[in-house]
Design a protein around this nucleic acid. Sequence first.
DNA 1: CTGAAAGCGCTAACAC
DNA 2: GTGTTAGCGCTTTCAG
Lengths: 338, 338
Amino acid sequence: MHLTIKDIAKYSGTSVSTVSRVLNNHPDVSEKARTQVLKIVEQYHYVPNNSARNLVIRESATIAVIVRGIANPFFTRIIKTIESAIYAEGYSMSLHQIGSSDDELMAAAMLEREKRLCGIIFLGGRFNYSAMDVATLRVPFVCCTYANTFGALDPEGFSSVAIDDKREAYRAVRFLIEHGHRRIAALIEAKGGASISQLRYEGYCEALADAGIALDPALVECAGSFEMEDAYHAAARLAERAHFTALFAISDAMAMAAMKQLSLHNIRVPEDCSVIAIDGLELTNYCTPTLTTLEQPAEEMALASVKTLAGLLRGDGTNNHVFMETKLRTGASVRSLE
Amino acid sequence: MHLTIKDIAKYSGTSVSTVSRVLNNHPDVSEKARTQVLKIVEQYHYVPNNSARNLVIRESATIAVIVRGIANPFFTRIIKTIESAIYAEGYSMSLHQIGSSDDELMAAAMLEREKRLCGIIFLGGRFNYSAMDVATLRVPFVCCTYANTFGALDPEGFSSVAIDDKREAYRAVRFLIEHGHRRIAALIEAKGGASISQLRYEGYCEALADAGIALDPALVECAGSFEMEDAYHAAARLAERAHFTALFAISDAMAMAAMKQLSLHNIRVPEDCSVIAIDGLELTNYCTPTLTTLEQPAEEMALASVKTLAGLLRGDGTNNHVFMETKLRTGASVRSLE
DNA sequence: CTGAAAGCGCTAACAC
DNA sequence: GTGTTAGCGCTTTCAG
């Protein structure tokens, strides 16, 4: 079917070991043999079989990045930085996306064996690994953008880089309160459960509580997902049910959909209702009004993830868990209620 | 290092073939052996090595989807549909992203050997393959979203599903002309070259020509990329240099950035300037004003790609090249110049 | 510098 | 039903 290294050896009048050496840039090959092999490779469009290669090598200096939900535009920024950081550290990257219903740990375990990985970075994922779940993993791994807050893992056994979702949500809502708002609605995904939505919702509740504002259930609306369309409908329910002077959305995308819905209800942003969110998508710089948001430090998070993993691989460096801070990006969607 | 099928055979008191049969759900295994093997597999967290598996199988009923630039939000919609269509046809999907500087054909050739693919779908990619370039590919492939317009490939040798970029751009600009506009600016990526930008630019030129409107170079601005930020700056140059009553942007994202810039120049959309684009991103439903755009039929394109490939694989069906039509999505960004 | 040969972990005949 | 065994295509000692 396909040409093998054996065929190339035959056609170029050498042996498979010589061909292998040429292909892998080993020094111990005569210039003559090298040229000849390369010529045949070119001529016959030979492409080596990676499965065979992966099977025989012991370790591959490859770090896998396993992404859950690549549609998330926030991840694309992170991935870009992770990639260059991985190369800069002398490793190569293998990027894999998994569906939201797939098991990233199983995917990781299979890749570890298939590609002889030396490390793994999880980007987005479940929040509740158990020790059993990670038992198949033999290489160090770091969770980027989430910290297994709800899981039961030995913190010494892995690393994480994330924002403190609860704290940042607290800051966002606090920001609204400081601008004089007291009737603050929340647009979340769902209550309870082990998710980013729950953490950010808790931050919302705590900020209200600390300011002596009673939690009004009528001001909290669940979209059921992080999708813009669902957020759009949820915002309609909110607008029709309650009055509020400010809205905290758990994500930029949801905030954007909500703003559209508010304008349809003749609620002007920020004149009638201020809006704040968390994420800092590039995109929300371009909507009208520009969204005020707590921007996640994507680049720093990416860098920290790779640095941590590289430290682990080199032998210096230990597992650790870092929480980064967001940066307030002041848009035009929040006004003071003087 | 890792447990192998041999270890599992030993621990479960059977042979490797029995273990293999259990793992691959072959019928010829006693219930007793099956339970026993599964127990050991579970207990020792055994995970098979796919490289070894891929090496020995002849073909795998796997279709690879190779995406260039997964950041493109338009692709995520397509991928979702492609995935379910592939499963519905009885194949499994292997999704791979490649960087914009990588060679998708080399990636495809390697995957074909590594995973014993039976077919390939390219999503986004270069426009100028040559026959030499595809010489390494042995399985049928279809180009989704582009048609190798600038390439030199035998049309019988591959399939494509795309929109006719030139025609659709023509329609968009024609739409503006029918609304009374004559000073129509164009926001493109770059002039010349083998790209979607060039095709859409040609459509713009032709629509103007057909309407007897002279092409004014001052009304054409190149962003240099498809990025929002670059489009944003390009729109500023345009606004400062020329007067126009309408703007045609080659993509939704660029249009969105341009609208923001126009508003900064006190040019209201659509009162002072109408805006139209091509793509139909979900997102532009939520910006203000809602963007009028020619929506690419992502789902149909995805479906057609898989159907074509499946036909090729089954033996009925031949290579073909289909151009789909966009659907006008009327937003609020275009007004009539009565 | 070069080639022969021993596997890497798995599947699939092929015998039993 | 089950076990033995011959490779899949490649890298890598180990001799020459």
